[in-house]
Design a protein around this nucleic acid. Structure first.
Length: 245
DNA sequence: ACATTAATTATGT
DNA sequence: ACATAATTAATGT
């Protein structure tokens, strides 16, 4: 999957030595309006790095020194409560920026980012942010759009928590997940990174037990199919119906 | 309509 | 073998 582009298997991997290809960025929204020369200079300033599943890319509260473009994999954005437990805020698929605290005027990261799968990201020192915004057409609007999208998602989740019951909340969460990170498989659409019932319960403000029961019930009705850390939605439409009761 | 507690079983390294 | 994940039942608010 990654091997064709990156040859950094057994390396500490901290540099851009494989001469990153311009096609990596040219199609992504924040960079899509730029010409090859501009992308070249952006890439030449970037650091490429591979993250094992489960390792943190940056931590909540730490000074926001770099911003990132996720090239492959999935990232969980997690907040740590005062009591030390993790609460998953949202998931970021490949092709999106992250760690863009600067865009909302923050100098520290507001949350922790953890690789949900093995991931690859480019990063730049944060002091380049203002130049990117000033020099590159479409970068600012692109980033504002992703920020808007994420705020919108978190907002609708808050509304859901206040208005909907647990069953429709997790139904909605599942639908969002397959929309953003769904992969077509034989019997439906699979969330293509490992997700536990604990994760789902954090996204929907319930317990893993309730999620487990719901998934078991839905599985009996042929709505979903799940195993350890894997969930396949077989009947999205039926889920949508459930989500609106 | 849901959480909590606790006991049990399954699954991946 | 061990740790982590998932299920299930019983009880509580």
């Amino acid at each position: 999957m990654y091997g064709s582009v990156f040859r950094m298997d057994a390396a500490p991997a901290r540099t851009a030595f494989p001469r990153l290809d311009e096609s990596l960025l040219s199609r992504l929204p924040p960079f899509s309006k730029l010409d090859r020369r501009q992308i070249r200079t952006i890439l030449d300033q970037a650091t490429s790095r591979r993250y094992e599943s489960g390792v943190s890319i940056f931590d909540e509260g730490a000074p926001a020194e770099r911003f990132y473009m996720l090239l492959d994999g999935y990232v969980r954005v997690v907040r740590i409560t005062p009591t030390g437990e993790q609460v998953t805020a949202l998931h970021i698929p490949a092709g999106q920026l992250l760690g863009i605290a600067r865009a909302i005027g923050k100098t520290v990261y507001p949350a922790t980012a953890i690789a949900a799968t093995e991931s690859i990201a480019l990063s730049w020192p944060m002091h380049l942010w203002d130049r990117f915004v000033a020099d590159y057409d479409g970068f600012a609007t692109g980033t504002y759009k992703t920020i808007g999208d994420r705020m919108g998602e978190m907002n609708t989740r808050i509304v859901e928590m206040a208005t909907q019951q647990v069953e429709q909340r997790v139904a909605n969460a599942l639908l969002r997940l397959i929309n953003q990170t769904g992969r077509k498989v034989a019997n439906g659409i699979e969330i293509d990174f490992p997700i536990t019932r604990q994760d789902l319960s954090e996204l929907t403000a319930t317990t893993l037990h309730t999620v487990s029961r719901l998934l078991s019930a839905w599985e009996r009705q042929g709505l979903v199919q799940s195993s350890r850390k894997r969930i396949v939605v077989c009947d999205p439409h039926a889920l949508m119906v459930l989500a609106q009761a």
